[in-house]
Simulated scan of single mutants.
Amino acid sequence: MPPLFNNLHHVCIVVRDLEKTVAYYESLGVGPWFDYPKKGTYLEFDVPNKAASDAMRYKCCDLDNVQIQLCDPGELDSPQKRFLDERGEGVYHLGFEVADRDAAEAHGRALGLGVVARGRRMDGSGFCYFDTRDKAGIVLEVRKS
């Protein structure tokens, strides 16, 4: 099986003020920014707090080599909100593109990685956030778009 964390897709930064942060990046010439396209219904959607997940706001920017995602977690309890409260603004996770979401999740579990959140759609797309904070310093995500 290919390495799980080989094809970096995005860097997700948790911020307090989405509009202010986007404006700052734009002042540096980084953009354009777009709303994260939440697409499709999940067959499986296992997150710590669905209401908090639904309320999160994201802005994204595609650079030549990677996407930047800015996340405003809102006020409801979530891992992202706890990260912001405990550590302040910063990189919450790295997202890696994989060919097979299910196989990647199984591979991560076989490596002993705990799962923070996961979602799978009918077409096989989706995500899995592994709890790698203690040893990697951040969450590592696998995703198939």
Rank of each mutant, 00 (worst) to 15 (best):
N7A: 11
V11M: 15
A52D: 05
C71E: 03
G137K: 03
C60I: 06
F45H: 11
K135G: 13
T132R: 06
D77Y: 02
E44W: 00
G114D: 15
E44V: 14
L28K: 10
V47R: 06
R143D: 01
M56S: 01
T41V: 11
E105M: 15
L43A: 10
K135H: 15
G90V: 02
C71R: 00
W33R: 05
E75M: 03
R101G: 08
T41L: 10
P48V: 01
E75I: 05
N6C: 11
L63D: 02
Q69W: 04
R120V: 13
P79R: 00
V14S: 09
V115K: 06
F130S: 03
F127L: 10
G126T: 06
P3H: 01
L76G: 01
F83T: 02
K81Q: 08
L113P: 12
R121W: 03
I138T: 13
G119F: 05
L28P: 09
S78V: 02
E89V: 06
D46V: 10
E19M: 11
M122S: 12
A136Q: 14
D35E: 14
Y36L: 04
G74N: 08
A106Y: 07
K20W: 08
A104D: 07
L94H: 13
Y25I: 02
T41Y: 09
G29V: 02
G74Q: 07
Y129G: 06
R82G: 02
V116M: 11
R133T: 14
F127D: 03
M122H: 07
K20V: 14
H93C: 10
Q69T: 07
I13T: 14
R109E: 15
G112L: 14
G137H: 04
R118H: 13
D17W: 03
R118F: 11
D85P: 05
V115Q: 08
A51R: 05
F45P: 01
H10V: 04
C12R: 03
L63E: 01
D35M: 00
R109L: 13
P2Q: 15
Y92H: 14
E75P: 03
D35W: 00
R120Q: 10
R121G: 04
V15Q: 05
Q67E: 14
G90W: 04
A136W: 13
D64R: 01
I13G: 04
I68M: 11
P79I: 00
M1K: 08
D17T: 08
V22H: 09
L43D: 15
V66W: 03
Y129N: 09
F83I: 01
F45T: 00
A136F: 15
K135E: 15
K135N: 12
F83P: 02
K59V: 09
A104V: 11
D17L: 06
L63F: 04
G40K: 09
E44M: 07
M1S: 13
L84G: 08
P37V: 02
Y42P: 08
V98E: 04
V66N: 03
P73W: 04
Y36Q: 00
D123I: 06
Y25R: 02
L111N: 10
V91T: 10
